[in-house]
Design a protein around this nucleic acid. Structure first.
Lengths: 252, 252
DNA sequence: CGTGCGCTTGATAATGGTCAAGACGCGTGG
DNA sequence: CCACGCGTCTTGACCATTATCAAGCGCACG
């Protein structure tokens, strides 16, 4: 199945949006949850110098693919991406969703090749951080080294959360946990923690949570019936946060 | 660091086992799969200087507990450990098994507190690597920094494998995959890849793989009946590696 | 105005969980 | 050395959750 959006081979000329291209780490709204966190302003400038901002990714475009040479890690500036691996029998496993301010691609470091693919779920702006430069800079800036270690460690603990979720929790709990996770991450970005639009499909949700589409759909219906969520296709409103927490049953 | 072996209160004079205490990274049989990998010999010496080797852990002793202050990461020198988290409703989730040469504790970096507990499944010797020293050394030795980034990245990709396993694979496939993983890790340490003793209980296996003990037991029985494995309690012999691979169905 | 994809809902089936009982192995103490 | 007891493992019968299969709805897009 090929999906091709406007593949306007004809226009050729892109008018870069100057507004867009003035973005830097120093003025980035997300710098308190992204890499620059905990850097002094002249350090931020140095980091900023190695970061590349290219033209936005369109929906369904890949940022990288499993097996690609690993050169960089990436920060999401806007939009959402999903990371996934393809199992040899052709199935897909979604390993994560990445929202603005979050870093992806770190799983490529170990083998110098990306261990998963990443594609945009909607138009997305990305900061590319060449890893070799990041390494050099990290040697010079202990805070940056520390922060990057922490980011990788966080990725590990988050994966462990997901492992626990998949291993121990029911369908209701899994979906509930994902809704809470999105809610929390929205709050970090000063967005509504109770009302949002899901950027991913039901299929992606199910895939991520180890469930079928049908089950995901049924869980949403159930939660709607229980007045915990208001679900209108991708528009979600959390009506009863406490109830949702109880349902998700993870406490952490 | 104080060394106390047989703490025979009366004699006062301890004859430390010189054999044991001559262990260092330079002569360690495991250094090709552990931290020193990719270091020059004078670099290894520097690393060696920060590593602490304390008295062995007895079976069921904890190396650290969830929530403990994070100070160090640890390398397994001998024995096996399991890492696990306790969910708030009191259940346990095993997040990994660690064999000689493997590093654990990296999930504690992100919050300066261990995100999981680690306990010995049998008597185990451990190298403790104080993280602050490791950070300093990493700044000075690019190879070490790189290698540690890679180790963390590997932990991420391994967790993602487990996520996929839990999310997509049947009980047979999960147990098969674990057996193959242990087999491979044994081979790395020049041990038999077809015959080994499982250091963990069926409960631990089930917990790790998101299955009940009963199911794990049934899978072993089934594989025995199919002449894929020879199972005698914890003694495992892989009779048909190809068959096991087919059964595990992961290809990677 | 149709076509297709994504979502929902229902009926049925299968995998693995739960409950229960018994076997086996191991360490302790008589 | 044997008996006991406990913990771990195995096996069986039954049940529940979720997958599978199937059909229909609705919105977006051509």
């Amino acid at each position: 199945m090929t999906i091709h959006l406007a593949d306007t081979g004809d226009n050729g000329v892109l008018k870069p949006c100057t507004h867009e291209y003035q973005v830097n780490c120093g003025n980035c709204r997300l710098n308190s949850i992204c890499l620059p966190l905990a850097l002094e302003s002249d350090d931020i400038k140095q980091l900023d110098d190695i970061i590349q901002r290219s033209k936005p990714l369109q929906k369904n475009q890949h940022l990288y693919r499993e097996g690609d040479d690993f050169q960089s890690v990436f920060a999401v500036r806007s939009g959402t991406l999903k990371a996934y691996k393809t199992t040899d029998d052709g199935r897909e496993q979604v390993t994560g969703f990445y929202f603005p301010g979050e870093i992806l691609g770190m799983d490529g470091i170990s083998n110098n090749a990306h261990a998963s693919s990443a594609k945009a779920l909607e138009t997305a702006a990305i900061c590319e951080i060449p890893f070799s430069s990041l390494e050099k800079l990290s040697s010079l800036m202990p805070n940056l080294q520390r922060h990057f270690f922490q980011l990788m460690s966080r990725e590990i603990t988050e994966d462990q959360q997901l492992i626990t979720l998949l291993s121990k929790n029911s369908a209701d709990e899994r979906v509930g946990a994902l809704m809470l996770s999105i809610s929390t991450r929205n709050a970090r970005r000063k967005l509504s923690s109770t009302q949002f639009r899901l950027p991913m499909s039901r299929v992606d949700i199910g895939n991520y949570l180890g469930l079928t589409v049908e089950t995901v759909s049924r869980v949403f219906s159930r939660m709607q019936k229980m007045d915990i969520l208001q679900v209108d296709n991708k528009e979600i409103e959390i009506l009863d946060l406490e109830g949702l927490r109880t349902m998700a049953n993870l406490g952490r």
